[in-house]
């Protein structure tokens, strides 16, 4: 009972510290920019001939959902909190006060993860909902269809960045290199190399789910998507594997290696 209370306190403490951190304010910058972009797109293009529902859906999915939301907004939101949940304590050296409490190390990391996950999922899903509302009828359809890929990608990024946070001292930079460099390059490589990128599975799910509205991969011979089911399994495996590895690393590493 004592342990459960301590763990829950740590979870709430971590959640509050993340919520009121500078990251929250900074994450709003790209989100507001995206909202303004969508408002402009909708009302400016509304004055012109917009094309069929399928064409607009394709544009929204390809230009906004895949390139901006999937490849930028989700990783950046995950990075903002997942690397700072444990990284912030490492940077400030306050992690020590947690490590000398009677909570097993793996539970400390689990509390941090559980504090980060709802926050990032909340921000990503809420902003996704707002963006879809701003995009009009196409957005409403996209919200229903793309919620699962958004959810699984967010989960995968949060877990992966927690793994980075316990493994690397400058985890924010490693996560940034991964999100903006590796994901972009790996996701655009020919062959099956791209299958190690989180975004590949998210995009595959989107192409699969959006197929009913005529959405397809730009070049099916170059980008060979997997089915939505396979993508879900891959992302779930990546998330669980990443978390288990992170928990193990955190429970065996000494404090000096963590700071």
């Amino acid at each position: 009972m004592k342990l459960a209370r301590a763990w829950f306190t740590l979870l709430m403490l971590s959640f509050q510290r993340l919520l009121w951190s500078a990251s929250t304010l900074m994450v709003l910058v790209p989100l507001v920019a995206c909202a303004l972009f969508l408002v402009y797109e909708r009302y400016d293009l509304g004055s012109h001939d917009q094309g069929t529902f399928e064409e607009t859906f394709d544009d929204f999915s390809t230009d906004f959902m895949i390139v901006v939301f999937t490849l930028f907004v989700i990783p950046v939101c995950a990075l903002a909190y997942a690397t700072t949940s444990i990284g912030g304590d490492r940077e400030d050296r306050t992690l020590l006060f947690l490590l000398v409490r009677p909570i097993p190390r793996w539970l400390i990391l689990l509390a941090k993860l559980m504090a980060t996950l709802p926050l990032v999922l909340g921000i990503v899903v809420a902003s996704f909902f707002v963006f879809c509302r701003l995009a009009g009828p196409v957005g409403r359809e996209a919200f229903v269809l793309y919620l699962p890929p958004v959810f699984y990608m967010t989960l995968a990024y949060v877990c992966l960045f927690h793994l980075f946070a316990v493994t690397f001292r400058h985890s924010t930079i490693v996560a940034l290199i991964y999100a903006l460099f590796m994901e972009y390059f790996l996701g655009n490589m020919p062959g099956i190399v791209k299958r190690i990128a989180v975004s590949f599975y998210g995009r595959s799910m989107m192409y699969d789910l959006g197929a009913r509205h005529g959405l397809s991969a730009p070049d099916p011979t170059w980008f060979v998507p997997v089915s939505a089911q396979t993508a879900v399994e891959a992302l779930a495996c990546l998330s669980i594997g990443g978390v288990l590895l992170a928990l193990w690393i955190f429970s065996v590493r000494e404090y000096r290696d963590l700071t």
Partner: peptide
Amino acid sequence: TSMARLSGYP
């Protein structure tokens, strides 16, 4: 107080 709560006290 937070440190006491992290030690398991209500």
